[in-house]
């Protein structure tokens, strides 16, 4: 257990250590920042690719065209039933009338093309969006089979090239995950290395003080904790600056605006969510503590 009276001492020592050696801190934090920026960029890329893949896979739903003689009541009952299936996220009903209105609005100035039509020839339909975990070609195929067993509806799958694209996208996501993991491991090793060495510098600068601490009966934990705080500080500040740089870099990226200009519903590059931001900062602080632990353990062993 930590003596509560020591907490003030630990914080004071950690602050003193940071204040007394600003240059060492600056070097440690900036090198940590550079490493973590690489990781943050990878995270942003991975997160955006995930979002993009999610948007595309949502578009790869199933459209069921309904026979003309099915009344709208039966159509909405069908939609309700299908919505309850585990593999279905949403079901949207497009009655014949709504389909006609949609076509009208899509045609815009060319809607006169429809003037000659004696009756609405467009079929009613159900648009089914698959639940997140069922957005795979196999799951999609089995849902189609299940739908085909229902009477009253004729099922047509939406655009076939999408499945192929989805497979490619999934493969790319897997590669990116693996690449991201490799980058994360490299970056974390670099951060551990940087902080370990910074803390070692501080330890050597305070060698006399540590010797006195041991003489008067300080235990290992008492000696280590201020260094843990220092490591956590370096990690957390490094991560915060890296996140800030990534955020600013993302908004300054010309590609983001370009993409948003040419698309009606742009896949705008997104920054990572606040939960991930929190995890990055806390994770970097924990890495800082780990690095400090390695440095102090080695130092105390060498100077036992």
């Amino acid at each position: 257990m930590i003596n509560p009276r020591h907490i003030r001492y630990f914080i004071r020592q950690a602050i003193n250590s940071v204040v007394r050696s600003p240059l060492v801190q600056l070097v440690a934090i900036s090198t940590t920042t550079v490493s973590l920026t690489v990781m943050c960029v990878t995270l942003v890329l991975a997160s955006n690719l995930d979002n993009l893949a999610d948007r595309w896979s949502r578009g790869l739903g199933i459209i069921c065209f309904i026979a003309d003689d099915v009344p709208n009541k039966r159509l909405s009952d069908l939609a309700d039933d299908i919505s309850d299936w585990a593999e279905v996220e949403t079901t949207t009903v497009y009655t014949k009338e709504r389909a006609f209105e949609d076509l009208n609005s899509v045609l815009g100035d060319d809607r006169r093309l429809l003037v000659g039509l004696e009756k609405n020839v467009l079929p009613a339909s159900l648009e089914i969006v698959l639940a997140q975990s069922f957005r795979t070609p196999t799951a999609r195929q089995s849902l189609v089979l299940r739908l085909k067993q229902l009477s009253d509806i004729e099922i047509v799958e939406k655009v076939d090239f999408g499945s192929d694209m989805m497979s490619k996208m999934n493969r790319l996501r897997e590669y990116l995950k693996l690449g991201g993991l490799a980058i994360a491991l490299l970056v974390l090793s670099a951060v551990v290395f940087i902080i370990t060495n910074t803390v070692r510098l501080t330890l050597y600068a305070r060698k006399d003080e540590i010797e006195v601490m041991r003489l008067v009966g300080a235990n290992g934990r008492f000696i280590r904790i201020p260094f843990y705080l220092e490591g956590a500080f370096q990690g957390a500040v490094g991560a915060s600056v890296a996140l800030l740089i990534t955020r600013l870099g993302l908004s300054a990226l010309p590609m983001a605006e370009f993409v948003s200009d040419i698309q009606s519903q742009p896949p705008k590059l997104q920054f990572i969510d606040s939960g991930t931001v929190f995890l990055v900062v806390v994770g970097a602080a924990l890495i800082g503590i780990l690095a400090s632990h390695l440095a102090t353990s080695r130092f105390l062993r060498e100077n036992d």
Partner: peptide, 11 residues
């Protein structure tokens, strides 16, 4: 005071 701080004595 350092000796007593290590021992966690009250201020």
């Amino acid at each position: 005071a350092f000796t007593l701080e290590v021992l966690g004595r009250p201020r």
